[in-house]
Computed example of a mutant assay.
Amino acid sequence: MEPYLLRDEELNELVVKIPGWEIKTKQIKREFNFSSFIEAFAFMTKVALICEKYNHHPYWENVYTKVIIKFNTHDLGGITNLDQTLASEINKICHQ
């Protein structure tokens, strides 16, 4: 998949296309909370496999039961179709 920067209209539609994600100027972000560290880590493992599939990796943090994921495409300087795709894939495996 060749990444391209999303246009303003596409960025405005992200709220509907990737619910739960916070749309910022140059990144998308979402916080996930789980009932245990094991659940959080299992989720991160699933996300890691998705990211490897697309060869696009997040900035993320994990503290105990909380996982924060941020995406942007540094090479292009903003939010791309690839970031949107990964957020959609993560939403499919998330039960929140």
Rank of each mutant, 00 (worst) to 15 (best):
E10Y: 01
G78Y: 05
F71M: 02
K66V: 09
L86N: 02
A48T: 11
H74T: 11
E52M: 00
R30I: 07
M44H: 06
L49C: 11
D75A: 08
D8C: 04
N12I: 07
Y64I: 11
R7S: 15
I69E: 07
Q84N: 04
A48G: 15
S36G: 09
T45V: 14
L14M: 14
I50F: 06
Q27A: 14
H74I: 04
K17N: 14
W60P: 08
E39A: 10
F71L: 13
M44R: 05
G78P: 02
E13Q: 10
F41Y: 15
H56K: 04
N55Y: 06
P19C: 06
I18N: 01
I38F: 13
V16I: 06
T25V: 09
L5V: 06
P58L: 05
K46E: 15
F37V: 06
I23N: 02
F71I: 02
I69K: 00
I50G: 07
V47K: 00
Y64S: 12
I93S: 05
D83K: 00
D83P: 05
I23C: 03
C51W: 01
F71D: 03
G20E: 03
R7W: 12
R7T: 15
E52K: 01
P3L: 07
K17Y: 07
A87W: 00
H95Q: 10
W60T: 07
V16Y: 12
M44F: 10
F37K: 05
K66P: 01
N72L: 12
E61K: 00
S88A: 11
K46W: 13
N33T: 13
N12G: 08
T85E: 05
G78Q: 04
F34M: 08
P19K: 01
I38M: 13
R30F: 12
G77I: 04
F41S: 14
D8A: 13
E31G: 09
C94D: 15
E39Y: 12
N81C: 10
K46F: 13
P19S: 05
K53H: 13
A48P: 11
L11S: 05
N62C: 12
A42I: 14
A42W: 14
V15T: 11
N12M: 07
L6T: 00
A42G: 15
N91K: 08
I23T: 03
Q96I: 01
L82Y: 01
V67Q: 03
L11N: 01
S88I: 09
N62I: 09
D83T: 02
I23H: 05
L49M: 12
N33I: 12
A87H: 03
H74R: 09
K66M: 08
P3K: 01
Y59A: 15
K92W: 02
L6P: 02
E22I: 12
F32K: 00
W21H: 01
N91H: 14
N62Q: 12
P19R: 03
S36C: 07
F34K: 04
R30C: 08
R30G: 10
Y64E: 14
R7G: 11
K92Q: 07
D8N: 06
